[in-house]
Amino acid sequence: MTKDFLQIVIPESVIGGVTICPSFELPFNEGAVTGIYSDVEQIGYIVQQLQYNNQINLHFRKEGCYERLTIMESLKFEKALYSSNEVLEDILKMTGLMDKKSVKIKDLNEVQVQRVRFAKLLMHEQPIHILEEPFQNLDVETKRIVDIVITKLKEKGYIVYLLANNLEDLLSSSDQLYRLDSTGLEPLDLQEERKESEKTSETESQLIKLEKIPTKLNDKFILFNPPEIDYIESVDGLVNVYVSGDAFPCTLTLNDLEQRLVPFGFFRCHRSYIVNLQKVREIVTWTKNSYSLILSENERTHVPLSKSKLVELKKIVGI
């Protein structure tokens, strides 16, 4: 029966000649939590496309509750509706709602309502779960609960997809991570810091030969393929790698990065900038001594170009 899941294809969405969402197939990772890092617009579109697939349980970011029911009553209702075998007490304990079980939902605060919704989610017995922005606007404790709920769903053998536009949250809960933008769906490489440190000594020499650029976010390393990177900036000795408008701190120095990236068509355009030449669309002259590069991905991204480097750049491009 798992064969059927393999083919969940999202059709392309084009509005006014602009590709909002490319056509792609949902990556199928059995028994794993798949994170898809994407834009709000694309997430909304995906959710809309999948609404009527009855194998999929969608967990929306916003959804109504029966406000006049108590927590216990609404969980009982959900249990009967989905004919679930879960024990309500366990669920209440897991979501930290035990002492509130006879409070009406309208008397709860935002975060508690979210917890109730995740408690309900545990009883939705459908093989595929898609969670829209599961971590948005939650406190730390509730985020932890959401994590537990996701793990529990995974343990029950369901396939879980998380859609979010916040990479940090996705990192901590997904096993497989993908990035979706207008060009398509690409896997993001993840390596836990723990594993990394176990074999630091032996991999250190290999790591330098590695083509990927490691960045560090919280306790995780994210490895980017050089073509993904838009540009790299160094401010006050802090190196940030920009990918699709998001900054990822990198521990390497700009000089190291330059050495590594030049073979991939990168160019040190300024004392504190390295740019991916493949992504440069325009060279703008502001005044006689000030230039800047405009990247094709996003027209608002300007990267400064110093005068001394302009000559070099002209040579490379062949002007």
Binding site: Q51, N54, N57, L58, F60, K62, E63, G64, C65, Y66, E67, L81, Y82, S83, H124, E125, Q126
Partner: peptide
Amino acid sequence: EKNTLRSLMLSPA
């Protein structure tokens, strides 16, 4: 009004 009809429709019922 409470936006619960959608989830009811998407449920197995």
